[in-house]
């Protein structure tokens, strides 16, 4: 008798743990032949709320980690992903990607992590300034993380898209709660396993699976979230986000482009998006 495969139970990733959704609901992911690939957690606003709590809790210590440290943590994530490359290629292929496309996406994902790992202790030097004020003061401006960021991850490029969005967020000292690709959440949750076996502190990245329709408004309105990144081009959704984010003047960034495999989808400006500029004055006479 042939061996029966052990199927994976996909769960959310919150605070370094893999809990089931608090709602107990699920949705099905099928392949092109309408065969069931997996049952995914259909996360609720409560799952989101719980994730924000842990993301907030660890944000300060992650922000206060040295830039060198954050860079090495990101690099470690890349290493872990590299070692599990074949798993991700397989998972991406399950939802219909050709082998070469899947391989390309995974490799680009690894490279992107390394790209941002390298920026960790450099972007500050690019964006900060010393301002020559016309008085007896030393004045400088530097970037600081915006805080907790909620992310509506790209639907396409479920792995590369998500990594392209979250790497610049976390390298800058933010923590985040992500709604993974609705189309293919499997690679996203598997990526959580990578995060969990690397050195990313628990709670820095939290990944939920579920429906945009249900969660978008909460991602946009939660008042303890400092910024929201939305990937997509649904104008109705964009309007809703911009509207609801007014409640606490959340920073909103919309990524309408879909070419996450392109070089233009990586730059330090993606890091700057989730940073606040702080200006400091001090007298300079003794």
């Amino acid at each position: 008798m042939a061996r029966i495969n052990v199927l994976k139970t996909y769960k959310n990733f919150i605070g370094g743990k893999f809990p089931r959704t608090e709602s107990g609901r699920y949705f099905q992911i099928k392949n092109g032949n309408e065969e069931l690939l997996a049952n995914m957690c259909l996360s609720s606003r409560k799952d989101f709320r719980n994730a924000v709590v842990v993301a907030r809790k660890v944000q300060k210590s992650w922000q206060n980690a040295t830039a060198l440290n954050r860079g090495q943590v990101l690099y470690r994530v890349a290493e872990m992903l590299e070692s599990r490359k074949s798993q991700f290629i397989e998972e991406l292929m399950m939802t219909g990607l050709s082998k070469s496309h899947a391989k390309n996406e995974v490799e680009l994902s690894i490279d992107r992590l390394i790209y941002y790992a390298g920026w960790s202790d450099k972007f500050q030097q690019v964006f900060s300034s010393v301002n020559p004020v016309a008085s007896n003061h030393f004045n400088f401006s530097l970037l600081q993380s915006v805080g907790v960021v909620s992310v509506i991850s790209p639907n396409d490029y479920s792995l590369l898209g998500m990594i392209s969005v979250i790497a610049p967020i976390i390298v800058g000292g933010n923590t985040c709660v992500i709604l993974s690709s609705e189309k293919n959440p499997m690679a996203s949750i598997s990526f959580a396993e990578v995060l969990n076996t690397s050195d990313v502190p628990s709670g820095v990245v939290n990944i939920l699976t579920g429906k945009r329709k249900e969660l978008l408004s909460h991602f946009a309105s939660h008042k303890d979230v400092n910024a929201i990144i939305y990937c997509g081009d649904n104008n109705q959704e964009i309007k809703e986000i911009e509207h609801l984010s007014s409640e606490n003047l959340k920073r909103v960034k919309i990524y309408k482009h879909k070419n996450w495999d392109h070089n233009s989808s990586q730059s330090p400006f993606f890091i700057e998006t989730c940073q606040e500029l702080k200006t400091i004055w001090h007298p300079n006479k003794v």
Partner: peptide, 30 residues
């Protein structure tokens, strides 16, 4: 967005000004 150390209410065209959280979005100056 602005921290004055051992001084306060200083402004200069070269110095970015603006707030975080509900004090605003974006910077003016510099």
């Amino acid at each position: 967005g602005v921290v004055w150390a051992n001084t306060y209410n200083k402004f200069d065209p070269t110095s970015p000004f603006g707030g975080v959280k509900e004090s605003g979005i974006g910077r003016e100056g510099g």
